[in-house]
Simulated scan of single mutants.
Amino acid sequence: MGDLRVGLIGLGAMGRHHARVIRQTPGMDLVAVADPGGDVHGVAGELAVLGDVEALIEVGLDAAMVAVPTVHHEQVGMALAAAGVHTMIEKPIAHSAAAGQRVADAFSRAGLVGAVGYVERCNPAILELRRRLAAGELGQVYQIQTRRQGPFPARISDVGVVKDLATHDVDLTTFIAGSRYRQVAAQVTHRSGREHEDMVVATGLLESGVIVNHVVNWLSPMKERTTVVTGERGAFVADTMTGDLTFYANGTVPTTWDRVAHFRGVTEGDVVRYAVPKAEPLRVEQENFRDAVQGKGATIVTMDEGVHTLTVIEAILQAAEEGRTVTL
Rank of each mutant, 00 (worst) to 15 (best):
M1F: 07
G2N: 11
G2Y: 03
R5D: 12
V6C: 06
G7N: 07
G12C: 08
A13M: 05
A13G: 00
A19H: 02
R20M: 12
Q24M: 09
M28I: 12
P36W: 06
G37E: 00
G38E: 08
V40R: 15
V40N: 00
V43H: 07
V43F: 09
A48Q: 13
I57A: 05
E58Q: 15
V59N: 00
D62Y: 07
A67E: 10
T70F: 01
Q75Y: 08
M78K: 14
A79S: 13
A82E: 15
A83H: 05
H86R: 10
T87W: 08
E90A: 05
E90R: 06
E90W: 04
P92T: 13
A94F: 06
G100T: 10
A110F: 08
L112C: 04
G114Y: 03
P124H: 08
I126L: 13
E128N: 04
R132N: 08
L133Y: 06
L133D: 05
L133K: 02
G139C: 06
V141Y: 00
Y142L: 14
Q145V: 11
T146R: 02
R147C: 02
Q149A: 12
R155D: 07
L165E: 07
A166N: 14
T167G: 14
F175T: 05
A177H: 10
S179K: 04
A186P: 05
Q187E: 14
R191H: 07
H196K: 12
V200R: 02
A202K: 01
A202H: 03
G209S: 07
V212H: 00
V215C: 01
K223W: 06
K223S: 13
T227C: 09
T227W: 08
E232M: 02
V237F: 02
V237E: 07
V237N: 04
A238E: 01
D239G: 06
L245M: 11
N250I: 13
T255K: 12
D258G: 13
V260Q: 05
A261P: 01
G265S: 09
E268N: 11
V271I: 15
Y274H: 12
Q286C: 12
V293T: 03
T299Q: 14
I300M: 02
T302G: 12
M303F: 08
I313L: 15
A320Y: 01
G323T: 04
T325E: 15
T327H: 06
L328G: 04
